[in-house]
Amino acid sequence: MIPGEFTYHRPSSVAEAVAILVSHGDEARPLSGGHSLIPMMKLRMAAPEHLVDLAGIADLKGISDGGATISIGAMTTQNELIGSDLLTQKLPIIRETSLLIADPQIRYMGTLGGNVANGDPGNDMPGLMQCLNASYVLAGPDGEREVAAREFYEAAYFTALAPEELLTAVKIPVPAAGHGYAYEKLKRKVGDYATAAAAVILTMDGGTVSSCSIALTNVADTPLFASDASDIITGSTLDSATVDRAVAAAEAITEPASDGRGPAEYRTKMAGIMVRRALARAAERANG
């Protein structure tokens, strides 16, 4: 549990950080909250020669209200997400999900940017960002670009982020007022990654679902946007036959690993149960 040797950098601007990344390429890694990278380094499963600590970049902090879109700086901690009145009001599912991440001590350190950029399928925010159809702002030597969360994840720890790029912010379209939401997470204990988890955002019109978005956490080597399941629910009255079909569609796209949380078969079924429960809870919360 002792890391190898590395050089520590603490840039004070995004441009400076990108310049360091450019000059060291694969040998450099940005450090945000450190709760994934540092343990990996201690286990010597990751051995970056240059560690680029982003804690000194003030521009990467904060939550800004852009009306139809809310933008969250990459270095905003999960604890800050939980404490944000704006998010509680406009995007309460972020607060609900953040409270299910790890434990308070980790949430004081862990950041939204680190959580979504690392590509760890166990992380909760990537699936949630897919559910919310968020996009990530990536800053590189040639300027900024935006990539949709639904397009970002390629495989476990492999993402659209290039080695010389930095994820600087997450932009989230604000769902309609009165939307229903739920993040259902089954885990073995506090601090654990999900055995399976599901995020649901939906809007209701009378008894009918007018829009629905479902995403899954930790049941494949990337987060999964369950587009078929979302489509099945949209336009329905959430009758049990439709919910059963949506659950089956969500289960069908899972490809979980068998691990200490249970065999693949179990985790697939739990993804279905989480979808079913999240749908019920989201519908209960929706107005309209």
Binding site: T195, G262, Y266, K269
Partner: peptide, 8 residues
């Protein structure tokens, strides 16, 4: 008796 074994 962890959850998956009880489920099984």
């Amino acid at each position: 008796h962890d959850a998956w074994r009880i489920w099984k």
